[in-house]
Simulated scan of single mutants.
Amino acid sequence: MAEPQRDRELVRHYWPAELRPAFDALFAIDDALAAIVANSTQPALGAIRLAWWREALERLDTNPPPPEPRLQAVAAELLPRGVSGALLAELEDGWAAQLDEKPDWGRIAERGAKIFEIGARLLGNSDRQLEEAGRLYAYAAACRAGFDPGDQPKEEIRRLSRHRFPKALRPLTALARLAARDIGKAPVQEPEATPGRAAALLSHRLFGFIA
């Protein structure tokens, strides 16, 4: 039996077709960093592996990519669109924070803000609440991975409440719509890619609201 469809696959349908390879390259890097954290039984070794990726991404700005498919995809799809290796390397810190004994939620949340900054650059648009939406996305993703933040980000959701994102950004902010849904259902964790989540994405595409 095939594995259940992930949320990302639902959201991917909303990405402009010509930008899907670029978004795929972006999230492939983030997934590579996530896998290190998920599979690290020794935080120190995990930190070394994360540092390798950070340095490899930074080198892409001055050197050809090594024979690593995800780094080659970055060179082919993201660098020509103005997304530097150094900018992508900044994602590493949010994952490194999850290896700490007491994770810094500010650093974890900034990873989401950075992903949304890069995604907005690809889409050629921006919004004053975009970083807030990105932080919400990172927060919910970390909770899904088993991290306990303590307090829910109620203030962040309040600031995003009834804020309408522009149509051009909704292929990206759809991820924050699912994050707000997750937070609203906590501590229950809804399975990914359910009909309810698909409906939430459609509503966001039509109206642009996260919460």
Rank of each mutant, 00 (worst) to 15 (best):
G124W: 09
L10Y: 00
E101Q: 15
R177E: 10
A198Q: 13
P187L: 05
I48G: 01
Q98T: 03
G184S: 11
E3V: 12
P103E: 04
L19E: 09
D93H: 09
S84G: 06
D151K: 15
F23M: 07
A22D: 02
F23S: 03
A141R: 13
V37I: 13
R6N: 07
H163K: 11
R162C: 12
L178S: 12
G208I: 13
I115L: 15
S161T: 11
R111Y: 05
D100G: 07
H204W: 04
G46F: 00
K154G: 15
N39G: 04
L206N: 02
A186F: 09
R54W: 07
E131P: 00
K102F: 01
L50G: 03
I48E: 14
Y137A: 09
S40W: 01
E92L: 03
G124H: 00
L50I: 11
L45E: 05
P65Q: 03
E92V: 15
A142C: 00
K154L: 13
R121T: 14
E90Y: 00
R54Q: 14
G106A: 07
P195R: 08
P65I: 00
A34P: 05
H163S: 10
L122C: 06
L175F: 14
F27T: 09
D151Y: 05
A89E: 08
H13C: 13
E9K: 09
F209P: 02
F27C: 05
I108M: 10
L79Q: 07
D182F: 02
A180F: 01
L99P: 10
R111D: 04
L60E: 00
Q152P: 08
R158G: 12
P65S: 01
W95S: 14
R81A: 10
S126I: 05
E155Y: 08
L178H: 06
N125Q: 10
E110S: 14
V11E: 00
P66D: 14
K167T: 12
E155I: 04
W52I: 08
A17D: 11
F23C: 07
V74P: 04
R20P: 04
A140G: 01
E132S: 08
G150H: 06
L122M: 07
I36S: 11
E18V: 13
R121A: 15
R70P: 02
W95T: 03
Q129A: 15
V11G: 01
L50A: 01
L136H: 06
S126C: 06
L99G: 07
G208E: 03
L79S: 08
N39F: 05
R164N: 07
L169Y: 03
L87V: 11
E192D: 15
A56L: 06
R107D: 05
R205E: 12
Q129C: 12
A113Y: 06
R54G: 15
E155F: 14
A176K: 01
N125I: 04
F27G: 07
P65L: 06
L88G: 04
R8Q: 14
Q129L: 13
L136I: 10
Q98L: 14
S161G: 10
K154T: 14
D61C: 11
E117G: 11
P21C: 04
P149L: 08
D61E: 13
A51D: 15
R20F: 10
A97P: 06
E68G: 05
L172E: 10
A2Q: 13
S40H: 03
A199T: 12
A140N: 09
G82F: 02
L172C: 08
R111P: 10
F116M: 01
R8N: 09
F147K: 10
D127G: 01
R177C: 08
P69M: 10
L91Q: 04
